[in-house]
């Protein structure tokens, strides 16, 4: 790989956590470069450090060793050019859907009128038109994740990080939401990093699938998934899709067995 083309660069990243049962080696010597406009999925068993990697990119966790840069500078929590979406929709019950959506912009003291206009637009885009003034408890799990998605996009950050965003919603809802994510990604030429333990999901969304193993967390293989136009349901039925899923599963499986014995 050439130097300095990477929009996101990680070199020799190491992260250890101290626990009661000794040190956990969450990430060991991880090198990764992500280009602008790319959709990268991190996939692997639990404990492979994929979430840690994402949280490092978001500036929520600091690496022990190595260098990380997002657009030339180290990541920092609260940067306007980075937005992260969590597994659990973090919505405040005392705020309406619209007020929740606008929250990241509010924290950055962005102009109110524009933020609200953008939030409304995004809510329409994620299919929640007419729900702006509802409260969180009136929404289903899938709808809450939609709000969370709109909230993540409200800053219009060029880098979107997603940490298993739909792992708690049912299969059908997840499929539909992932189509939305793919659409959102292409719409604004964003760079997206998506963490999941679901291989199909990873292959469906990503230009590159980063397969990871645990103990210590390392990258096993990076699988390219060529993109021919927009990704839709027809892609899931294609031979390419199935072939890539098999390839990722094969890469992961050689390390999974080891894992299950332990």
């Amino acid at each position: 790989m050439q130097e300095s083309v990477g929009f996101l660069q990680m070199q020799g990243v190491v992260k250890r956590y101290e626990t009661k049962d000794g040190d956990v080696h969450a990430l060991n010597e991880v090198d990764l470069e992500i280009n602008q406009g790319e959709f990268v999925a991190l996939v692997g068993p639990s404990g492979c450090g994929k979430s840690t990697l994402l949280h490092i990119l978001a500036g929520l966790v600091t690496e022990d060793q190595g260098t990380v840069s997002v657009w030339g500078t180290p990541p920092k929590a609260g940067r306007t050019d980075i937005s992260i979406m969590f597994q659990r929709a973090v919505l405040l019950p005392w705020r309406t859907v619209l007020q929740n959506t606008v929250l990241p912009a509010e924290m950055r003291k962005l102009p109110k009128q524009e933020s609200f206009a953008r939030a409304r637009e995004l809510l329409t885009l994620v299919g929640l038109e007419g729900f702006e003034n509802k409260h969180v408890w009136e929404l289903s799990g899938g709808m809450r994740q939609r709000v969370s998605l709109a909230q993540t996009l409200v800053l219009n950050s060029p880098l979107i990080l997603m940490d298993e965003p739909f792992s708690a919603v049912d299969e059908f809802t997840r499929e539909r939401l992932n189509i939305e994510v793919a659409r959102m990604h292409q719409l604004a030429n964003r760079t997206s990093v998506y963490v999941t333990h679901n291989i199909q999901e990873a292959v469906f969304l990503a230009d590159r699938v980063v397969a990871m193993k645990s103990r210590p967390g390392e990258i096993i293989e990076i699988i390219d998934v060529p993109r021919n136009g927009e990704r839709g349901l027809d892609f899931i039925e294609s031979d390419l899709f199935n072939q890539k899923v098999a390839q990722v599963r094969y890469a992961l499986s050689s390390f999974m067995e080891e894992d299950s014995i332990k």
Binding site: A58, L60, L92, M107
Partner: peptide, 24 residues
């Protein structure tokens, strides 16, 4: 704790976190 992490990720100040998350 998830809400605190979220507030940190969106660049909330300590005062905003207190006012808009902790108190409610």
């Amino acid at each position: 704790q998830d809400y605190k992490t979220f507030f940190r990720s969106i660049g909330s100040s300590r005062w905003d976190e207190y006012r808009k998350l902790v108190v409610p």
